[in-house]
Write a protein that binds this DNA or RNA. Structure first.
Lengths: 243, 243
DNA sequence: AAGTGGTCTAGACCACAGA
DNA sequence: CTGTGGTCTAGACCACTTA
């Protein structure tokens, strides 16, 4: 973790705690910004920045001229499905219950589609990886991944059995920038039937993804295919209109 | 529109324009914050706030100690599918090409599930609406919607043929707060086959949604079902780690 | 060492909601 | 009218990257 977080984060964390502990109750106002500024011994701008973060996280909402209110439980059930808007990969999500089976690991030359999605030239080789991810030894998702070879100098089988994202952030010290995902429904194909154990007519939930680093360089184009009854994709969308 | 936007928004808009016009080129640094502050005649804090917004929107990224860079085109194709992270409803998305056919419009008492999702008591009636939305006269999506009756005093057939979201924001002056969505794949059911024209074995893309107002009150629980080949759900996810 | 962005202050004024 | 949150300033110091 960090040696020292900024004040506004520390304060946000304390307020988060007070909401969790019920000191600040849902639907009720929390102290005004001036009062909080005095309590924490900081300027009001700093309090404002803390509250902005909590507001974006959907814990509170503010009404100009009125006050700041705790926004009771958001009506959602976080279940075993994937949390929204995280691209830390499956490993962080499911931890040790996860294992991987590498089905294919080859180097290819890019198709037109890959050149476009990964923003590379026709002569730059691409890694083509197919992995079956298992949760508690049960087939969970079949991942087809394409990555520019030049970005992943030492990617090997050992890494593939664990987390590519950890390898990027820890070993290569690259920062994730974002991801664009498209979610479809589809029929099962032969690989799905073989590895996921789906029936020929079973629907498949497919997540197509382009992910890029903080400097805008795309590093991954992938398809994740799940049996219709094993996974949903969830999105939590807080309206930024309260800025 | 607004009479007068805050300075930081005006400046952000100007910078956005310069990126669009190629005055600030992808992959290159834009002027530093002090220079921009002088140019626009504002304090650096205000410039910072402009850049924060652009950063969150994924147009630029900043590196402490280094500079601020334009983040070239994000590798994504916005096609006819739904834009990400908008809950303004289909009307804003597709405009006049959209029409609606109200298949069912009744008042029911809530099930356990509805009570939980809409946070209401067992004696509070719920509107149950089934609408077929058509784009260019073609069946597009079948929407099952549940809303607490008390929140929608004058909802009528005329509104249902247009936009419930407009009704909320314009007529009732309520502000949307957020939405939680779960995307599944499923088999076609009888209603899908009848209204969407899908085949019995066709996969369906279903978006299950709970939406709430800015004060945290849930106002809608709904299912939107699309034929697998007519729609994808897209998500654009910018990593907030560059704060 | 120089220059960048990130944080923070102690005020000020404005816009808005509610009594 | 009072009190609230939203914006903005003119500086200061710190953390970091690059040379």
């Amino acid at each position: 973790m960090k040696i020292r977080a900024p004040k506004y984060e520390q304060i946000a964390e304390e307020i988060r705690k007070r909401i969790r502990d019920g000191i600040y109750q849902p639907k009720t106002a929390i102290p005004d910004q001036n009062t909080l500024a005095k309590e924490f011994g900081v300027s009001r701008m700093t309090i404002k920045k803390s509250l902005d973060g909590l507001s974006m996280a959907g814990l509170i909402y503010t009404r100009r001229g009125d006050g700041t209110y705790v926004l009771g439980d958001i009506p959602l059930k976080i279940d075993t499905n994937s949390p929204a808007q995280k691209h830390t990969g499956l490993t962080a999500e499911l931890g040790s219950r996860l294992s991987s089976q590498v089905i294919q690991f080859t180097t290819i030359m890019p198709t037109e589609e890959l050149m476009e999605h990964l923003k590379i030239n026709h002569d730059e080789p691409v890694l083509n990886i197919i992995r079956l991810r298992l949760v508690n030894k049960e087939p969970y998702v079949l991942e087809h991944t394409y990555m520019p070879k030049k970005l992943m100098p030492n990617l090997n089988n050992r890494v593939l059995k664990h987390s590519i994202y950890n390898y990027l952030e820890k070993d290569l010290n690259l920062k994730l920038g974002g991801a664009y995902r498209k979610i479809h429904a589809d029929f099962s194909n032969n690989l799905d039937i073989r590895y996921l154990g789906s029936q020929p007519n079973d629907p498949i939930l497919e997540v197509e993804q382009v992910a890029w680093l903080q400097n805008g360089i795309p590093f991954e184009y992938s398809f994740s295919r799940n049996k219709y009854d094993t996974r949903s994709y969830t999105v939590l969308d807080i309206n930024p209109a309260n800025a």
